[in-house]
Amino acid sequence: MEKDQAFYDFIKDGNRAFKGWDFSFLTETGRTSSNVLSWSYGSMAIPLTRNTDCMLDMGTGGGEFLSLLHPLSANVFATEGYGPNVAIAKARLEPLGVQVTFIEDDNNLPFADNQFSLILNRHESYSPFELRRILNKHGVFLTQQVGGSDCSEINKALGVPVNGEFSEWNLQLVTKELENHDFQILFAKEEFPVTRFYDIGALIYYLHAISWQVPGFSVTKYEHKLFDIHQDIQKNGYFEARQHRFIVKARKI
């Protein structure tokens, strides 16, 4: 079937550059929407940040979330493993007194034993052993994670297997792993909110940003499948996928 001009216009729009960890280009224009979770990571994090003497934000992205928690304590550190984000995070966070560090290995963090009373982690990998090493006694770890079945409907529509390396990543696995490293689980919950993409450009933009969803993604490689999705959106109004999210609050014992 001949592709319409709207399809190509959306492709061009979806190929624009993604910077930091800011999806407002989609969310603020209503081009995507997601069901709400029954918890708020931010509302759980804020009171913890107000009662800590030294804290770490793992995987800070461009520092978007951490900067909104200002005022922060005097000793705040942040890590980021994606090189292009580091300069963005430093520009945003260093004026607030945050020390930003580029890291490449979760198993070898450049921090002292027992350094932190709080570690925040939103959608970032980590090593339970390193968490235990750098947290002080009764230190708290708060993490919200993306589960292994996240948006698997996208992979199915494009004819791509879900990333097998993370397919078993879920709440049960994480809580058991933390308990095995002498953490007490204070709160844990897992949910599967639905997200909708209202045009194919929004989905393309998302796939460029979330590069691990479909490794090696390009419009050229998947153009025919993308056009099939575009047609479904034109017919139904949206393309729908299930997110996979879970949150854990744990204390070192």
Rank of each mutant, 00 (worst) to 15 (best):
R251T: 15
I154D: 01
I204M: 01
T29H: 11
E80W: 03
Q172R: 04
I204S: 00
I210S: 08
S38A: 12
Y238S: 14
Q234S: 10
L96H: 01
R132Q: 12
T101V: 09
T175G: 00
Q243A: 15
R16G: 02
R133K: 11
V86L: 09
T27H: 04
P47S: 11
I119N: 04
P71C: 05
N15T: 13
A87C: 09
A78V: 10
V146F: 00
E104R: 13
H230K: 02
M44H: 08
L72Y: 08
V76A: 10
A241L: 04
T52S: 11
Q115F: 04
F23C: 04
S167Q: 14
Q144N: 07
V86W: 02
H123T: 06
R31I: 07
A17Q: 13
G237T: 12
S34M: 13
H244T: 14
N107M: 07
N236P: 05
R50L: 13
K235M: 08
H244Y: 11
D57E: 15
I253Q: 11
K156N: 07
K225Y: 09
F192Y: 15
E179W: 01
R245T: 04
E165T: 11
R242K: 15
F141P: 09
S73A: 14
D150F: 14
R50E: 15
E104I: 00
I11V: 15
C151P: 01
L37F: 04
A250W: 01
I247Y: 05
K189W: 09
H244R: 10
D106M: 09
K137T: 15
I204L: 03
G148W: 11
V214W: 03
P161T: 12
Q145G: 03
H181M: 01
N114W: 01
N121V: 04
V174C: 03
E104N: 11
A188S: 15
N75S: 06
P47Q: 12
Y126D: 10
G63S: 06
V248K: 06
I233K: 00
R133H: 02
G237R: 05
G59S: 11
I210H: 00
R133F: 05
Q213G: 01
E165R: 11
I200D: 00
A157W: 09
G59Y: 09
T79L: 13
Y205A: 04
N121Q: 10
M44W: 04
S43N: 13
L207M: 14
G164E: 14
E28Y: 00
P71V: 08
F217H: 09
T175Y: 02
G59M: 10
I229W: 02
K3R: 15
A209V: 04
D9E: 14
Q184P: 01
A188L: 14
T175V: 14
K225E: 15
Y206N: 04
W21E: 13
A241C: 08
V248A: 06
I204Y: 07
E153C: 05
K3V: 13
F227M: 05
R92S: 09
L226C: 03
P95F: 07
S73F: 05
R242N: 12
Q172D: 13
S40Q: 13
D199T: 07
A45Q: 02
N170Q: 12
V86H: 01
E153Y: 07
A74Q: 13
A157Y: 02
E124K: 03
Q145Y: 04
D57C: 11
